[in-house]
């Protein structure tokens, strides 16, 4: 599906506090776009999980919040970009309960369930970019 980007906001993800700031930015953006409370809560929670991954496993990185449109619907796209070690076994990393770092192993798999679309671009030594999208119901 093709769509155009209408606006982009940047959020550095270097500290625990940055994760909180990113959550706040996502909420502001989704409120301004008219998303409902449940959709906001789901995407902010997913953002929190993914931003934490960027910080813990990617060694920090950057978050991006994009306003997108496919001509019919508008949506929000979030990107979590790090230059860390990358993910060796993606299938394993997406398994519920699997963790390489002492967490619950719900970050990636749970975020995938909370968003409408989920993409991950990673390779060992190449860093990781996770993208999620939520479209607004008309």
């Amino acid at each position: 599906m093709s769509f155009e980007v209408q606006d982009t906001k940047h959020a550095p993800l270097k500290t625990d506090e940055d994760v909180v700031k990113m959550r706040k930015l996502v909420r502001e953006e989704m409120t301004a776009m008219g998303f409902g409370l449940v959709d906001q809560t789901k995407i902010i929670t997913a953002a929190s999980e993914l931003a934490r991954n960027t910080l813990r496993y990617g060694g920090g990185g950057d978050g991006e919040i994009l306003r997108i449109s496919n001509g019919i619907k508008i949506g929000v796209e979030l990107r979590f970009i790090d230059q860390g070690p990358g993910i060796e076994d993606l299938e394993l990393a997406l398994t519920d309960g699997y963790t390489s770092g002492g967490g619950l192993g719900l970050g990636l798999s749970g975020s995938k369930r909370l968003a409408d679309e989920f993409e991950i671009d990673t390779a060992p030594g190449q860093g990781t970019t996770v993208t999620i999208r939520k479209w607004k119901m008309l």
Binding site: L37, V38, Q40, T41, K42, T45, E49, D96, L104, L106, S109, G110, R113, L114
Partner: peptide
């Protein structure tokens, strides 16, 4: 717990 939080937690798998 807010209802939206409960919905999200279950979907998250927690």
């Amino acid at each position: 717990m807010q209802p939206a939080v409960a919905i999200t937690l279950v979907e998250l798998g927690l």
